[in-house]
Design a protein around this nucleic acid. Sequence first.
RNA 1: GCCGGUGUGGUGGAAUAGGCAGACACAAGGGACUUAAAAUCCCUCGGACGAAUAAUCCGUACCGGUUCAAGUCCGGUCACCGGCACCA
Length: 802
Amino acid sequence: MKYDHKSIEKKWQKKWEEAGVFHAEENSDKEKFYALIEFPYPSGQGLHVGHPRPYTALDTVARKRRLQGYNVLYPIGWDAFGLPTENYAIKNHIHPEIVTKRNIAHFKEQIQSLGISFDWSREINTTDPDYYKWTQWIFLKLFKKGLAYKKEMAVNWCTSCKCVLANEEVVNGVCERCGSEVVRKVKSQWMLKITEYADRLIDDLELVDYPERVKAQQKNWIGRSTGAEVDFKTSAGDKLTVYTTRPDTLFGATYMVISPEHPYIEKWSAILSNMDEIRAYQKEAARKSDFERTEVAKDKTGVKLSGVTAINPVNGSEIPIFISDYVLVSYGTGAIMAVPAHDTRDWEFAKKFDLPIIEVVKGGDVQKEAFTDCATGIMVNSGILDGLSVENAKAKIIDWLVENGVGRQKVNYKLRDWVFSRQRYWGEPIPIVHCDKCGYVPLDESELPLRLPMVESYEPTENGESPLANITDWVETTCPHCGGKAHRETDTMPQWAGSSWYYLRYMDPHNDSALASKEALEYWSPVDWYNGGMEHTTLHLLYSRFWHKFLYDIGVVPTKEPYAKRTSHGMILGENGEKMSKSRGNVVNPDDIVNEYGADTMRLYEMFIGDFEKAAPWSPSSIRGCRRFLERYFSLQDILTDDENYSPKLESAFHKTIKKVSNDIENIKFNTAIAALMALINDVGAAGKITKKELATFTILLNPFAPHITEEIWSICSLGEGMVAQQTWPEYDESKCREESVEIAVQVNGKIKARINVPADSDKDTLLSLAKSDERIAPLLEGKNILKEICVPGKLVNIVAK
RNA sequence: GCCGGUGUGGUGGAAUAGGCAGACACAAGGGACUUAAAAUCCCUCGGACGAAUAAUCCGUACCGGUUCAAGUCCGGUCACCGGCACCA
């Protein structure tokens, strides 16, 4: 019989749906397992072959867990707010809601053709008012706890999207999405205090099972550093506070630098004699975009403040103050003490402005370059610190600063608060009104959802206002607090809002009185296994951990962390090894593969393509190997016998394969699990027949990878009651994994000289005597002294002789 | 510069915890079947030497070390990939 993937796949997809076999059970006594993939953004381009890789991987795990008797939740939905849809809508004069519906329909059809065991009864959509009602609800909670606030500040402004970006969305000074220039613009923005959670976002990484590279990247992004603040008295009669991670080098501070935006410049303007020069420098610094500022990073510029100096608290020496744009206003106190001997940037600045360089840590030549090694140096020229190690000097100077009231220990972070407003239409409206009398007032929770108004035009405005600002009868409203005239917030939330909590909604997607019921949250939390891309490590993953921790604090969710385990898939590259993209013309559409080879071949190939965590180039010819394997499997029905047992010859091979496939799936080694099945089918082919028992076991093992064809074989060969999806995952017997006889290598002086077959349970003495008496080994040992005999049962024997 | 990762045949990649390097595939070459092609089946397939599926030697980026034994552990070097980057 010919393997006709088209009719088989359609047939079984229909049967699964009718039987509802992939629906997570409500009120189940079974142990739960919650598998999650990052829900897709339904773009107009549809799926490419990269999408199914993580879906198939966790589908394999989910299907295996069901066979192992778990109550499995494996849901999907749509992260559908966002700019591409909005831009497409503007260009083609179709409302984004309609575009979204159409894109979702297309995505859904494509995904369903792959036979992924998603529970479609729990499908969610972030643009659905019943969904974003709860996104808005969380925002109100954040606002009421003081974690959402509006602030006038310089923000990243994408000149093409005409929209504010979060720091995380600016890559190399350009917009992460469109690649256009990003400039600084002062605007009033909604902010979320993610910085308040910085410590917990780092420390709680201890509680979760994430890949090391993900943890490292998150820590790096949060950028915690421990140092000290030091107060310097100034000749203006006030004090200037700096942050430093090297308080041990305080004796080496020979000047100070404050950022061009530092507020003290205004404060001192009356006593500064070179204000014109200073203002010119400030203007120049402000004009530069972030990109230019990093571009010119090597060449230090600055202006000395004439008229104000500072006093080093530790030795009373008077030192000059400069402004320079290498000091950032947004980090630390916006001011530094410069120790050119032991900081590369300070050293460059000092050389350029001919400032003194005083060595305080011995170990380098500070006239040639800054000596920054903390591990080996010994303190010199440092009064009370002389002779100490850097580490001890740090502790001692902080004590001294505290005793004298001129400093304190201080922790700083690179992480900044999350810029949360966007000046676009296709996002969740922020449920706040502004009243002249009462200020920013939250809507009552009963008013939610605050729906997006239906409008004709949603083009971004030139003046940087949200398109919603033009809809007067929506904007004008009454104050929920005093009843007077007020207007609505017209900015919308960023795309990251809806995806920051979606995994909670899947637990109870149709609940209209809470984001999910307490019982559902208790039962399903946390997500047991979350797979996603590395590109979301500092965006989505960090944001959603932050929201989750907030929800934990207000008693909504029962766990500190949302995701117990995280894995990351590698990208699928084009045939040429480059990233798949329309412009490179190397995009492969999964529809074509499903059509030509079938979903099972497609799934199998995506899992076999290589190490799941690494990028892998698409290879059209390798797909055929997977198709051949399935055809060979399909034709096993021709050599089927009625025997209900394993045949003696293959029994241990089957037990070993059960073990290997079981373990490999858990360890995301899908490629070797499939290789083991291929090897086993080769053994079966050599045997020339397969028993019922063997085919049943093989079918269940293969089912998570190739669900359709295995159901077909199960059915036409009458291997058991019901569907494969309702069977039990096979067990292996450790004692049966061993063969009766094994081939071991015999080495003489570490070189392999022979391979011998021995009974598997041979003890060391037997092995050694068998080895020594082997006709190829004996002559080599003749007349020699045996110095050492090493014996690894089942593996090898090594005889060291001289 | 800092953090994380990777380096194995023509290709994708295997190798539990230091124990037979190259599993499983792809591609290539040869053969069978066929009028022919496709498909399928069989054989070969890291390199050198060789008639050889004989023996020997070399071989997991490079240099060195530990060990009876190193792709794997240790020290150093190089290359590539990802993230951060004037963060004091």
